[in-house]
Design a protein around this nucleic acid. Structure first.
Lengths: 398, 398
DNA sequence: AATGTTTATTCAAGTTATTTGAATTAAGTA
DNA sequence: TACTTAATTCAAATAACTTGAATAAACATT
């Protein structure tokens, strides 16, 4: 939780260089393979400046030359792209009863994943397990610790001392007042970023998913509850106190189902893992895992279809809200739901007519399913690390 | 409307200087009076860098020295603050039947305002009128054109070719496909920023209103419809296509009142100028202007109270949505409503319990009324110009 | 009242990363 | 084969920031 007022900091030669490296990396990320002259034109830098940066990046191994562009006049431009073998990043998702690890190369390809059941996910127990997990990931990928860009730790929000936190079923026990970043940086001895699952998932779609070329979009994360991650102009939204995106607790039905937060008719009482479990349990059907859901959907289970229709109705409302508020390029669905259930939900949406997103000249769908499957959050953790080194933000805060 | 993909641009010495000037001005804005050493510490710059920038700003007249800080050890620090007499900015609000002008000095004080009735607000008629208006404002304030930082033009959104636009009662005729910024820059021969009313209003509260020291907050704008402006980390949100904040068309009552957008139960059918006019008309009471509303409220008019209660109910829902999505420092109300009506609305809100904003340690209200009255939009136009020169954003797009 | 501490300020290099400009290379085109 | 176009290299030149030493002026201590 922020408490002291921060101020934007000024630039100098060094910070300028950091910024320009990110600008170059971001351009290569979105346009690879590409050449120095093209980067210079697009990024408003001189050829020479770009050339120096590319040279450094190549020496460090982040970029590799991949031949020359031909077919146009002039000297063939040397082309560069990300070197997947250079640096890598690890994402850790902390859940109440499990620990999930995903390792990504610089391009965002997942090169290792692991799931570990955990009886007790309190800090004392979980932190050592995470350390072991990171060691295993590094060993399995045959990389050196020096190549590890950092670790992204993801857990369900909201963070901080919100009164709501204790009522939230999704929250992890004993983590409320912990400085997550500091604890893991001390334990892992490498840079750490901590984020909630929805925001991490959103970033994963931008780094190597369906939103790779988008700067402004929303991500709806199906977890125990329902979360929202929003990227605007390439930057994740965080809110004033780090609790951005608690969309599960917006009311879509006045006087509706009682929610753990105290309100009635919260969206996540209709759309979430807990919601479908409860709904099916009331009809005598147990949902122990995601595979059961997949199976039931294949069997066209009437109760599940009924739930999907109700969920789709409430989701459609939420989509109307998001579109009219954020005016995003698209809304991505993802998280703990099986792909087939997510697709069924999408197909049964009744997207509102009265929305700024309802344009004739649309080139992409208003809603789409994310690419990273139900490892989304862990992949998102690692994506955040990659995202950070490729995302220019001179608007640093000290 | 954006169409070509833009990329963040790199920095160089010149852009770095622009950025640092803004960082310094932003610090002075929020902390005046203040001294060079303090700025240097807070902004992560060397004393010398700040000293050079302050010297330049003083020469240009943007800052003035105001004595020395005493009472602490060490050499007394020279204090600086904004020089209201130096530069100024003009805001123009374009409405279907009127033109409103507000002139602000660098501190954000309104030094001139004018309202002009206009039969026809189409570009051909309105642009020359705006030029005359700007000339009158400059003459009245006894300033030179060289001191004019720019003109902010404000009109109701959504902009661009959204299919919704033609159904929106608030939209201005014949302006749909006009490049507003270009047209006015050509006509006025000075920098121009174009924005929608809600965003402009939000910026006005940050430049010289109740949100002066806030970096992340929401603004609900009562106009013909209902608009939303959001500032995050000091930057206005715009959406992917410039239509951010069409909150009037989120549905707060499924199957509710028919809206011009095609949906039913849109928020702005319950909360807006048109809404109260319609509601009162159905009860045989005509509302020709804001003063009538003020009068009716003073008389405790039963119908108006009834409307306020209904509006407050829907607003409360919207506030829950905004708080849970954006996690803002506060939500500011403002726009076309008289202050007394806005206050009545606020006092009758039933703020949701289940909100991340419902914290015990809150220091400011969850909802507050804006400071700029019903000239908000025009003042916001001028504020945008001032905001621009005091807001660091190296994440420039070419 | 004299001395010491603290902080702001000034002045004069020194450093970094950028831009600029001239010369070179190499491909496509006429 | 000569011309055009565009990328690249090399060598200064430049702008803005940082560093470090010296000075100034207030408050604090003795």
């Amino acid at each position: 939780m922020k408490d002291i007022k921060l101020h934007p900091i000024g630039g100098n030669a060094g910070r300028n260089r950091t910024h320009n490296r990110r600008v170059v990396l971001d351009y290569v990320r979105a346009n690879e393979p590409t050449g120095r002259a093209e980067i210079a034109k697009s990024c408003g830098l001189s050829f020479q400046a770009v050339s120096n940066i590319i040279e450094a990046l190549e020496t460090e191994g982040l970029l590799v030359a991949v031949g020359h562009k031909t077919g146009v006049r002039g000297q063939p431009a040397a082309q560069y792209k990300f070197n997947p073998k250079s640096a890598f990043a690890i994402g850790i998702e902390l859940r109440p009863n499990s620990l999930i690890c995903a390792t990504l190369n610089l391009k965002g390809d997942c090169i290792y994943r692991e799931r570990l059941s955990l009886e007790d996910s309190s800090p004392d127990k979980a932190v050592p397990e995470v350390c072991d997990m990171v060691d295993r990931a590094i060993a399995h990928c045959k990389r050196s610790r020096a190549q590890l860009l950092g670790v992204g730790v993801v857990m369900p929000g909201p963070f901080g001392a919100a009164d709501m936190a204790d009522m939230n079923a999704a929250i992890l026990p004993d983590w409320e007042s912990i400085d997550i970043k500091a604890v893991f940086e001390a334990a892992l001895e490498c840079p750490v970023i901590a984020e909630n699952d929805a925001t991490a998932a959103a970033i994963s779609e931008r780094v190597a998913g369906v939103a790779r070329s988008m700067d402004t979009f929303c991500f709806l994360y199906f977890g125990a509850g329902l979360g929202l991650g929003v990227i605007t102009n390439g930057h994740a939204q965080n809110g004033a106190y780090g609790n951005f995106g608690e969309i599960g607790h917006i009311v879509t039905q006045v006087g509706g189902t009682k929610c753990s937060c105290g309100n009635e008719g919260c969206l996540e009482t209709y759309v979430s893992r807990l919601s479908v479990q409860k709904f099916m349990a009331n009809r005598g059907i147990d949902i122990p895992d995601a595979d059961t859901l997949t199976m039931l959907l294949e069997q066209n289970n009437a109760a599940l279809i009924e739930w999907i229709d109700i969920a789709a109705k409430h989701l459609s409302q939420a989509i109307g809200i998001l579109e009219n508020i954020f005016d995003p390029e698209t809304i991505v669905f993802g998280g703990a739901m099986p792909d087939s259930v997510t697709d069924a939900l999408i197909s049964r949406l009744q997207l509102p007519q009265g929305s700024v997103a309802n344009r004739k000249d649309r080139k992409i769908d208003r809603v789409m399913r994310g690419a990273s499957g139900h490892y989304t959050a862990a992949i998102g953790g690692a994506s955040m690390i990659i995202h950070q080194i490729t995302t220019p933000s001179m608007a640093l805060y000290s």
